[in-house]
């Protein structure tokens, strides 16, 4: 009888505790619940770069992809771009592709920006925010590291230092 009571009480308390714990957990992760979670497969997308070449994420299987979302008006993006460009040169041969997705700006602004900072990696414009919506991005810049299997290894928002950019490249080197 006593044993049973303890048993029943434990079960009820456990169920209640689990419900509370889940609610708290969900509440505190809701602000940064990326639609694309680390450890999951990165959603596929196709965008055309400034040279008219199509890039489909799934075509880069076997390579690490450094996926960066940015805008010309965003200061931290502007600061980190040259770093990314430098590291792109270092790691291009080691099987890493950099894809820089601008959110909904004009061709002129993006082209001029790329020229000004002599950026060499493929830059594409997400004209109707489809990719941005798919990845659920809010603050720019946002960087996703995708490994050779197409799985998201890391998500970072905010400006990168040159060292961080290098670390990131190392993390997805195939």
């Amino acid at each position: 009888m006593k044993k049973r009571r303890l048993y029943v009480r434990s079960i009820i308390l456990f169920v209640l505790l689990a419900a509370v714990a889940y609610t708290l957990y969900a509440n505190f992760t809701k602000d940064n619940t990326m639609k694309v979670a680390v450890g999951e497969k990165a959603p596929d997308f196709v965008l055309t770069d400034m040279n008219g070449q199509k890039h489909r994420l799934s075509d880069y299987k076997g390579q690490g992809v450094f996926l960066n979302f940015w805008g010309t008006w965003c200061k931290p993006c502007e600061t980190e771009m040259p770093y990314i460009n430098n590291q792109y040169h270092q790691y291009k041969e080691k099987g890493i592709e950099v894809l820089a997705v601008d959110i909904k700006e004009s061709n002129v602004a993006v082209t001029k920006f790329a020229e000004r900072h002599s950026l060499d990696f493929p830059i594409m414009i997400d004209r109707d925010e489809q990719v941005m919506t798919e990845y659920g991005i809010d603050p720019l810049p946002a960087t996703f590291l995708i490994d050779k299997n197409g799985v998201v290894v890391k998500y970072h928002t905010g400006q990168l230092t040159e060292k961080e950019a290098k670390d990131f490249m190392e993390q997805i080197k195939p």
């Binding site: 805008g71 010309t72 008006w73 700006e105 004009s106 002129v108 602004a109 001029k112």
Partner: peptide, 21 residues
């Protein structure tokens, strides 16, 4: 059109920049 700044301002270094898109 050589350059375009949708939300134009002069940046700290005196260069024209844009505040937003």
């Amino acid at each position: 059109l050589l350059s375009y700044f949708p939300d134009f301002e002069f940046g700290k270094d005196g260069e024209p920049t844009t505040k937003s898109r």
